[in-house]
Design a protein around this nucleic acid. Structure first.
Lengths: 124, 124
DNA sequence: AACTTAAGACTACACCTGTAATCTATTATT
DNA sequence: AATAATAGATTACAGGTGTAGTCTTAAGTT
């Protein structure tokens, strides 16, 4: 799996919002949340290309970037990894930890029920 | 929050198995899973102390280490962090991602149901 | 055509991390 | 007492990461 640093992920995440996109569009999107210098973001884009997380096409002297993977696929792999590391691969203990520390809202519960429901429908 | 690297966490995790414990006990526990040199583990213990994740008492010329936090607290914080970063703080999308990719077993579902059940009992 | 701007390439640099090796001093051993 | 073993402290060192600054060159402007 391609390993991304936090900052690299944030840049890729800004691209996932809508792509293909140019560096300046990505910089614009990130400007709300981060106080990153334009050069910083360009460096990160370069590293993402080098890692194979992005590709680009030239358009004049600009590059138009496209992610090489989908967000859901990437986050799924990260999630598996995370749950493996901290909870021996089982997901319930994570949810249970949230529950115990009052971190679950009624909405979370409803959403979880729906996930379970869908899973069960899918089984039979 | 104290930030631990992967290797540091693994060492702390070996201590959480049973503590207080000496360096050699920790090294022994880790020897099954990791091919780490003894020196490597000592270095990591030192870094954990420096980061405030461990304390120790002297016993002759050995140190007896104790974690400064509980595993559940640490993993909860990591989980919050993770879910914030990748799923905007909502837990269901993580579970849903697992479901969609056939990563949930009947046992997982049962456990999740129990978590929900307990949560609901706790509400009224 | 000359000059300015701006895109990407390349360079920088301190701190973190993984992974030890060497140094120092104390406790065992002979 | 002299020597060996060993615990922790200190040092090492390459690669990753956050965070830009400088260089080069092509495109836009006057």
């Amino acid at each position: 799996m391609i390993e991304l640093s936090k900052a690299e992920f944030d840049v890729l995440d800004a691209l996932w919002i809508n792509y293909p996109a140019t560096a300046s569009q990505i910089i614009e999107r990130l400007s709300d949340d981060k106080q990153w210098h334009e050069k910083t973001i360009k460096t990160l884009l370069g590293r993402l290309v080098k890692k194979g997380a992005l590709t680009f096409e030239k358009d004049g002297r600009q590059y138009i970037y496209t992610p090489c993977m989908e967000r859901a696929d990437y986050t799924l792999k990260e999630s598996q990894n995370f749950i493996e590391r901290f909870f021996s691969g089982r997901i319930a203990p994570l949810v249970s930890g949230f529950a115990k520390s009052e971190q679950l809202s009624q909405q979370d519960i409803n959403e979880l029920k729906k996930v379970i429901d869908d899973w069960e429908k899918n089984q039979k």
